[in-house]
Amino acid sequence: MGCGKSTVGRRVAELAAAPYFDLDQMLEDSTGLTVGTYFARHGEAAFRALEARLLPEVLQPGAVTSLGGGTPVPEANWRLLQERARTVYLAAPLVVLLARAGSQATRPLLLGRSRQELEQLWRARLPRYEAAQGRVDAARPVEEVAEEVLALWDS
């Protein structure tokens, strides 16, 4: 959350003339609800289950896909990502991520959580993020990040 995955993903897809998929957008399109509304009505477990069901649809050869921050955490999702995708961790310090994430109203995982709880969540996910095949410093302008991601993809 806040690393720029959707913005960077769209730009990488443009630069590569590749199809682009956003898992959160696909979830919204399939349910008719925003991620925040879906989360509020059905809870995180239902959200993660739906996310896992939709994941295979967005992992298409040659496509660029943006995933939610929790998507790679479940082992089954991680195995699928390793089998069908090149993974890139858009890394940024927590303070940058929180500043970019903005309004709590649109970010369900921010609702009612203290800074300490958010840091614990981030640290819990870090080992999975750091296991990605590539890592890019995302605390830079989008164009620079997108070009570096594309360079990793082309290598």
Rank of each mutant, 00 (worst) to 15 (best):
E51M: 09
T106W: 10
R107Q: 14
E143T: 09
F47R: 06
A45R: 09
R84V: 04
G134E: 12
D24Q: 11
P141K: 03
K5V: 06
P141G: 13
Q120V: 04
G9P: 07
V142C: 13
L67G: 04
P56W: 00
E57Y: 03
T106L: 06
M26W: 14
A131G: 11
R140G: 02
G32R: 04
L15A: 14
P127G: 04
T106M: 05
R53V: 14
L81S: 06
N77S: 15
R100S: 02
R125V: 07
L33A: 14
E44T: 12
R53T: 14
S155M: 08
S155F: 04
A139N: 14
L118H: 04
V64E: 03
R115W: 10
C3E: 09
L50D: 01
A131T: 02
G68R: 08
L15W: 13
R100V: 11
R115K: 02
E117V: 03
P56M: 00
G70P: 05
L152N: 02
T87Q: 01
E83A: 15
P61A: 09
P93S: 12
L27N: 09
D22Q: 02
A146K: 04
V64C: 10
G112W: 08
R123T: 12
V142W: 00
F47A: 01
V149N: 07
A92F: 06
T7N: 03
E14F: 01
A132N: 10
V136S: 06
